[in-house]
Amino acid sequence: MLAQAIHPPAPPHPIAMRSRKHISPFNLVRARTVDEAGQAMAASRNARYVAGGIDLIDLMKSGLEVGTIISLDAIPGLRGISLEGDRLFIGALTTHADIAESELLHRHVPGFREIWATVANLRIRMVGTFGGNLISALPHYDAPAACAALGAVGRVRKAAGEYMDAPVTALGGDKSALLEGTFIDVHEPVRLLADRSLHPVLSVYLAVRPTGMRATIACAFARPHVIDLPLDASLAQADVAAEVAASAPAMMESSIASAAYQRRMIAVLLKRLLKRAAERQP
C-alpha cells in the first residue's frame, strides 16, 4: 500500500495559498564544510539548513519566510553509509534511494533496505535525505521510527560549534542544530522488521538483536512510541502485543482512524512482527 500522509501540516492560513510562486526570495549560502555551515547559521537571521529540501520547500510554498538558506549539498562526507568500528554511520545527506540500494546496510541490518524501497515515492526517495526525514520527524515519517527501534543516535553540531550524540527521538525542534549523521550499533547482529501495511494510520517497527527486541509504533503518536521487549516475547506474541497495545499512551485521532482502531491495530501488527521474528521470516 502506498504511503500518503494523513497528517497534513497545521491548517494553512490563509487558506489554499500553497504554491511554488509563493516562495519568498532568500539569501543562499553554499557551505563547503560543516563548520562553515554552522558559522553561516550563527551569522544569519532566520536561517535554515537545507539538504533534500522536501519539507522546507513545502513550508516555504505555504508562505514560510526564510532569510538565508544554507545548502549542505557541497559538504563532503555527509552522504553515504560507512562502518566506523562496530557502528554503522548513515550520513545525514544519504538519500532514501541510497539506503534502498546499500549493500553495506543490508549486510549489517538486514531488512532495512527492503523497507526503504517503498518509502514515499521514487522522486522523493532520490532527493529526500535520511537526515531530513529525522529532523522533520513528522508523525508518519519512517526514519525516526526505524532509528528509534535500532536505538540509533544522531551526531549533531550545536550552534556553538560543539558536537554531541543524541537519541534520534530527541532530534528536531532545534533549527540551528546540524545533524551530521546517524550511528547504528552493529556490534551484535541486528535485523529490522516493519509492518507498514496500514501506513499512514499506523506503522510498527521491530529491531531484533540476540539480547532483546525493541519495537516502535509510528504515525499514531507525535514521536515514535518505543517499547523494549525481551527476546522471548516472540513466543507469546498475542499476549505481549495485547499488553503493549493496552499500555500505549493516548493516540492522535485522525479523520480516517479512531484511537480505538489504532490501539487494536498496534496489537495486530506487533503480534505479526513478533511472529515473523520468532520464525526468522524476513
Binding site: 500553497r18 504554491s19 511554488r20 529540501g53 522536501i54 520547500i57 513545502d58 510554498k61 515515492n121 521514487l122 522522486r123 522523493i124 532520490m126 532527493v127
Partner: peptide, 24 residues
C-alpha cells in the same frame, strides 16, 4: 500538484527523475 506527489512535472536531472516543481 506542486508538492512532489503527482509527478506531472517530472524531468531528468543527470538521468534521475526529479520533481521540477520542488527543485530550486
Amino acid at each position: 500538484c506542486d508538492q512532489s506527489v503527482c509527478g506531472a512535472c517530472t524531468i531528468l536531472v543527470d538521468g534521475d527523475p526529479v520533481s521540477a516543481c520542488s527543485t530550486f
